[in-house]
Nucleic acid binder design. Structure first.
Length: 299
DNA sequence: TGAATGAGCGCCCTCTGCTGGATCATG
DNA sequence: ACATGATCCAGCAGAGGGCGCTCATTCA
């Protein structure tokens, strides 16, 4: 309800209820109620910006725009305070938009899917997922993107020098993207309640990175140790043969001369050398040039 | 009465961070 | 050859900043 102590103000207010707009823009035929409104509108056509900022080169059509600009850029005055957090804004509409992040209200519903957004821009941006529109093009490789930020990252990572890298604070890993470092930290450096057990020893770890590093220490480990001497090896079968040097066991017997051997391989060499008719000579002679070789593979 | 003020709507932008498929190295 | 896991990468949404413009109200 409009009230005023002055009749002139009431009369002017009453005009707001009228649809009469006698002031016409000669450039676009748009109609305005007052001369001032028409003048401001004309300034948008002519580019006239009478309100100049004293602290920078910006200039505006209306004084209100200048005031708002100064708040954003120079005075940082933010009169609209959120009652639920520390957020404050220059404009009431921004506070209204911010409040939706507390209430979860999503007034802008997509007509093609269940998505709803908190502001019009996000809905418009979302609609590109239905239309397939990719308005942003990389000037180097002409790849196209749905969002400008995605293209910016693409150019930075693919076409720029001195690409920033993100060093993991817990290990030597250097990762290209901040969000991927977060994934790295989550996967490798997050404490797990259920411990990871080493498959080679009794060690237990609660971080995957520590677990993997520990497992590597077993990689070249000679875990089979001789109980009689300092000999150690990676494979159990090697240890079995080695143990025979201490026990004197020689289970492989030559059926031609009864000579005994610790390893089957040694018996095979003996048989080939002394009893086999297909005995392989130690010298291979080239039939063309006469050159001699000690092994077949060299020949 | 014109100018100033402030509210309101709209548009576009940037920064940020998560997600899941692709790719690659390793066991 | 295959499985697994780490990293790369584009897609996408959340949040907020800044300006263009209009219009009702207040001030001088």
């Amino acid at each position: 309800m409009f009230t005023s102590s002055r009749i002139s103000s009431l009369n002017r207010h009453m005009k707001t209820h009228s649809t009469e707009k006698p002031h016409i823009c000669h450039l676009c035929l748009k109609a305005f109620r007052t001369v001032t409104l028409l003048r401001n509108h004309l300034n948008t056509h002519t580019g006239t910006r009478p309100y100049k900022c004293g602290d920078c080169d910006m200039a505006f059509v209306t004084s209100g725009e200048l005031v708002r600009h100064r708040r954003y850029k120079h005075t940082h005055e933010k009169p609209f305070k959120c009652s639920m957090c520390k957020y404050a804004s220059v404009e009431a509409s921004k506070l209204k938009r911010h409040i939706r992040s507390h209430t979860g209200e999503r007034p802008f519903q997509c007509c093609l899917c269940s998505y709803a957004s908190k502001d019009t821009y996000k809905l418009k941006r979302h609609m590109r997922t239905h239309s397939g529109e990719k308005p942003y093009e990389c000037h180097v490789c002409h790849a196209r993107f749905t969002q400008s930020g995605t293209m910016k990252i693409h150019i930075l990572q693919k076409h720029s020098e001195n690409v920033p890298k993100y060093q993991c604070p817990h290990c030597a890993a250097v990762i290209a993207r901040k969000s991927d470092l977060r994934v790295h930290l989550r996967n490798l450096h997050t404490y797990r309640d259920t411990g990871l057990n080493c498959r080679y020893c009794s060690a237990v770890f609660h971080e995957r990175y520590d677990f993997i590093q520990h497992q590597k220490t077993h990689k070249n480990e000679k875990k089979f140790k001789c109980e009689y001497c300092s000999y150690a090896c990676k494979q159990e079968r090697h240890m079995t043969v080695h143990i025979r040097t201490h026990t004197g066991e020689k289970p492989f017997v030559c059926h031609s001369c009864n000579k005994c051997f610790r390893q089957k391989q040694l018996l095979n060499v003996h048989v080939k050398k002394h009893h086999n008719t297909n005995f392989i000579p130690t010298v291979y002679e080239c039939p063309k040039c006469g050159r001699a070789f000690s092994r077949w593979v060299l020949y």
